[in-house]
Design a protein around this nucleic acid. Structure first.
Lengths: 198, 198
DNA sequence: GTTACCAGGTTGAATTTTTAACCCGGTAAC
DNA sequence: GTTACCGGGTTAAAAATTCAACCTGGTAAC
C-alpha cells in the first residue's frame, strides 16, 4: 500500500508538513498579512530558502491543502467505472464527499476547518491564487472530457457548480448550523445543480 | 549564558542527542553486542555514515556520556582558587560530585544510571575504550600538575583513586542499597583515599 | 575449504539545507 | 526627496546528509 519510504523521502515529507502546519497555525492565529514568511520559517525551524523550495509563494503555504485535490475532477472522469457517464461520475464523487463531510465540499463544522475557509475566502490574494489553481483544474478536466469548445464549457460548468455548492454549504455552517443539519439540503442542492447540467 | 544558537548548530545538537539516546536505550534493552549500528541508525532516523560522523566507533555511542567529563580533572586543577593546592582542589571537586549524586561518582541509584554503569563495566570492549579515555585524561591532568615523572605519577594516583572510589560506590548500590544510605561511607572513603595521597 | 552472509566502518557522488548576501517594491521618517 | 527599513523572494557557496557501493574480518553452512 505505502511506498518504500527511504529516509530521504520521509524527511522531506516531514519538513513539508512542518512548514505547512506552522504556516496555517500562525495564519489562523494572527491573520495572513500579519505573519511574515520569516516567522513561519522560524516556527518550522527551517531557513527561508528551504521554505521557498517547498512552497513557491506565500499563498501556496495556505493553498497546498487544496493542491492535494489538484486534478481530482479529471481523475474522477478518467477512472470512472465503465457504463457511467462523466457527469454522473462527478456527481457521485461530490455526493460521496458530502457523505464523509470532506472539507472541500464546505460541509464540515470543525472549528479549524471553518476558520481555515474563512481565512481563504476573506483574504483577496488567497482567493486570487485559488482561482488560478481552479483554472488548471478546469483545463485538466476539459482534456479528460474530450476536445473542443464543448468539453471546455462543460468543464467550466461543473467546476463552477462545485464552487457554488461548496460556498453555500460553508455559509450555512459559518452561520452557526451543524454539518449534520445541513447535509440534507446540501444533497438536495447538489441534486438540483448537477441535474440541470446538460 | 547560552550561545547564539544558529539553526545549523541547534539541529546538529539534536541529531547528536537523537543518536546517542537511541543507542543507549537500545543497548540497555538488548545488550551491547545484540544491537547493530544499523539498528541504532534506523531508530535515530539517520543514515549510517551520518552516525559515524558523530561517533567514530560503536563504543563511543555509549561513552560520549563520559566524554562530557573529558579533561575535567585538568580543568579543576587549572581553575582552582588561589591558595588551594591541586590535591585539595581535586578532593573538593570529588566531594561536591558526591553531594550532588553525580553519576560519575558511582553514587547514584536511579535505575537507568545503575543499568548504564552495569552495561559499561560488564562489556569488555567498553571497559577497554573507557581506559583509553582515562589515559588521555591522565595526560591532561599531568600537564596541569607540572612536568616530569612526579607530575605523571601524581596524576595516575589521583585518577586511580577516583576510579576505585566510583566503583566501590557503584557496587554497594548495585547490591541494593540507596545512594543516600551509602553517602556517608562514600565521603569517608574519599577522605581516606585522598588523605593518603602524597 | 569454499561460499555466503553479517557487522563495523569507509568512500564518493548526488541531494538537501543553512548561511549570508542580495534585489525589488512599498512606506515611514525627517 | 532622500534615507532607512521591512517583507517577499532569489542566489551562490559551504556544510550536512542520504544513498549505494565497497572493504575487512569473522563465522556459519555445506
Amino acid at each position: 500500500m505505502s511506498e518504500p519510504t527511504g529516509l530521504r523521502a520521509r524527511k522531506k515529507e516531514r519538513t513539508r508538513d512542518a512548514i505547512g502546519d506552522a504556516a496555517v497555525a500562525l495564519f489562523l492565529e494572527r491573520g495572513f498579512d500579519s505573519v511574515s514568511v520569516n516567522d513561519i520559517a522560524a516556527a518550522a525551524e527551517v531557513s527561508k530558502p528551504t521554505l521557498f523550495r517547498y512552497f513557491p509563494t506565500k499563498e501556496d503555504l495556505v493553498l497546498h491543502r487544496f493542491a492535494d485535490h489538484q486534478g481530482e475532477a479529471a481523475r474522477v472522469v478518467r477512472d470512472r467505472a465503465p457504463g457511467v457517464g462523466p457527469m454522473a461520475a462527478l456527481h457521485r464523487h461530490f455526493r460521496a464527499g458530502l457523505d464523509r463531510y470532506d472539507p472541500v465540499t464546505g460541509l464540515n463544522d470543525h472549528p479549524q476547518v471553518v476558520a481555515f475557509h474563512r481565512l481563504v475566502f476573506t483574504t483577496p490574494s488567497l482567493a486570487a491564487r485559488l482561482a488560478r489553481y481552479s483554472q488548471e483544474d478546469e483545463e485538466a478536466l476539459a482534456n479528460a472530457l474530450g476536445e473542443g469548445i464543448r468539453a471546455r464549457l462543460r468543464a467550466a460548468q461543473v467546476l463552477v457548480v462545485q464552487r457554488v455548492l461548496s460556498r453555500a454549504n460553508w455559509q450555512k455552517i459559518a452561520a452557526g448550523r451543524t454539518a449534520h443539519a445541513v447535509h440534507p439540503e446540501a444533497v438536495a442542492d447538489a441534486e438540483l445543480a448537477f441535474g440541470q447540467l446538460p
